[in-house]
Design a protein around this nucleic acid. Structure first.
Lengths: 334, 334
DNA sequence: GACAATAAATACAACGATGTTTTAACTTAT
DNA sequence: ATAAGTTAAAACATCGTTGTATTTATTGTC
């Protein structure tokens, strides 16, 4: 690769003068500057960031460690958001994922530290508690889509409770009065929070307990989760006769659509349906299109990088949890 | 951060001896080695890869430039595969994506070159021709899920033709005799190749032209693609009366399922259905589960890194196109 | 116990850049 | 014409490593 000295030789100046030009130092004669820029262009010189870093001691690198990033189709948006924001701020994202739990987070963090990453983002595929090893305290760390249940650490998570509250309020405002919530496994953080938001909205509307219903559509046996949406949905419709159903995720709504089709109930007319996730690949192509609460993954990714950069700049400890607002993608299902 | 000299001081040896230990040089007394390892542990020393790189002139960094990686849920598997393989080979992947066509590939490549990436992978979201700027010739470059129509360049693409051939043969071997192919927009590379594979299999089975049918389910108006699966499917079923339908992608199959449900045709019994993509989020949850041809994204990502590393090692120009075999995920739909 | 042979550590230079100090080349003022 | 002041370039040190040459310590042999 071309070095600064080769450029200097070509331009007939000392290599330090080239360094000046590269770093926009104004104390360079216009004549020399032009010669140097021409030489840079001709030789295709690119400054060696590693060498620069050794000297300047800032790497502009941010580590991104992810927990099986690709398992859900949209959680990769965290990465996209982080990537975009990093680019805007002149930072480079170095991405590591730990599929199948090997390599360990500790190994990945070591890698980040060897690259002298200024901060590290740890991203999870779904909203969950994660206990990070203590070594993560050694540099600014931001958790995305997860939080540490033991230690206070900077975190960015979706505001699941507000999301459930909002969508339930929308249903109630539209006149739905008997809402069933086909929730996910209640062990899941998101399920717990959404239930809280759901009930909060119902209370505000003074809906009695007999006029709403919460059921779980995931059955866990020996740690293995199976989906029982169809049977639960059939029973709920039969016995509770809801006028609207809120689904824990788009996949539940998809299954529900088949059940409703089978029962001859028209979505949006005979019964309202809403769900969570707003995946690219389902809501828009159901008929009628499914209204779904989008998880703000892209925004969360952006926020994570912004936060890391702030932490690096301030050298301040910031451990609060950012809850990012979820938007409802309103379509025709309610 | 801790430097090698601080470790040396702590261990009471010269810093070069520490370097020896870090690099597994055997000419260090066991006694010193232990003292040094202890000091490294105590201080939490991590070698500065940037400094090492300046000296050794190899970065072990591979650049990964992607064209809107997240638009389809599974193409991010390319990244996962690349990531995993890079880790196995002791390389670091530096990921850049160019959403909304800004920043330009040229800018991203410059960034890679500044980091002295040993090679660059350019990944596309779907199988397509991509004309890379000439600057990509300056270092080993591998294209994944795309190829350059003008220049011969190392590429790794899915073998769409073989995939279509295989799945069609499976259908024929199972006794299906009137197959309709609801193909994607024929402008798409994959659509063209699959059509070829489809017809190849039919010819081998001596199926006459009147016993198969190919229709396009995507209508392009002013560059905007709209999906007309429902109307096309209804017409095809009505007029052609196929005993099996091959779908251009899972989303087409999903729509088809609704049409078939409506018409009272039972998938897997009255009619066979197969498709391409094998996304995580659709085939398994349709009833009956959809058999789909998986695109080998993960393998392609791995292969790309393997290939780059080979190219870097050999300093050989390798410009052939690898076509990676696609596996059929057989379920209950045919 | 002296001397060579080997092993292990140190000393010094280098990598490609930047920060600081010094020097050289011009201006300007008297 | 000379001193002082200003500007631009060069010289030198430095960052945290590794590679090579050199020195020092250890061992073996007679």
């Amino acid at each position: 690769m071309v070095t600064i000295k080769q450029v200097a030789k070509r331009a007939g100046v000392s290599f330090k003068t080239v360094s000046r030009v590269v770093n926009n130092d104004p104390t360079v004669k216009a004549e020399n500057r032009e010669k140097i820029l021409a030489a840079i262009e001709e030789l295709g010189y690119q400054p060696n960031l590693a060498a620069r870093m050794v000297r300047k001691k800032n790497s502009d690198v941010i580590g991104f460690i992810s927990d099986e990033i690709s398992t859900t189709p949209s959680s990769v948006d965290i990465l996209r958001g982080a990537q975009d924001r990093a680019w805007e701020l002149g930072k480079t994202l170095m991405v590591f994922n730990l599929d199948h739990k090997k390599p360990t987070p500790i190994k990945l963090l070591e890698e980040c530290r060897q690259h002298r990453a200024e901060g590290v983002i740890y991203g999870a595929m779904y909203h969950q508690p994660v206990e990070l090893p203590e070594t993560f305290d050694k540099q600014p760390t931001v958790m995305v889509n997860c939080f540490d249940p033991n230690v206070e650490r900077a975190s960015i998570v979706p505001d699941d409770q507000q999301a459930a509250y909002d969508v339930t309020m929308q249903l109630l405002n539209k006149g739905y009065k008997r809402i069933a919530f086909l929730n996910l496994n209640p062990e899941i953080v998101a399920a717990k929070l959404r239930l809280a938001g759901f009930e909060q909205a119902l209370q505000e509307f003074n809906i009695e307990q007999s006029n709403y219903l919460v059921e779980t559509v995931e059955r866990v046996i020996d740690g293995h989760t199976s989906d029982v949406t169809r049977e639960v949905a059939e029973r709920v419709i039969e016995e509770f006769k809801p006028d609207a159903i809120l689904c824990g995720k788009d996949l539940v709504a998809l299954r529900l659509y088949f059940v409703l089709e089978h029962k001859g109930l028209r979505v949006g007319q005979d019964i309202g349906v809403a769900s969570f996730d707003d995946w690219d690949c389902i809501p828009q192509l159901l008929v009628p299109a499914l209204s779904s609460v989008a998880l703000p993954y892209y925004q969360m990714g952006r926020a994570a990088v912004s936060r890391i950069v702030e932490m690096v700049g301030d050298k301040q400890v910031s451990t609060h949890i950012d809850r990012v607002k979820c938007q409802i993608s309103s379509r025709e299902s309610f």
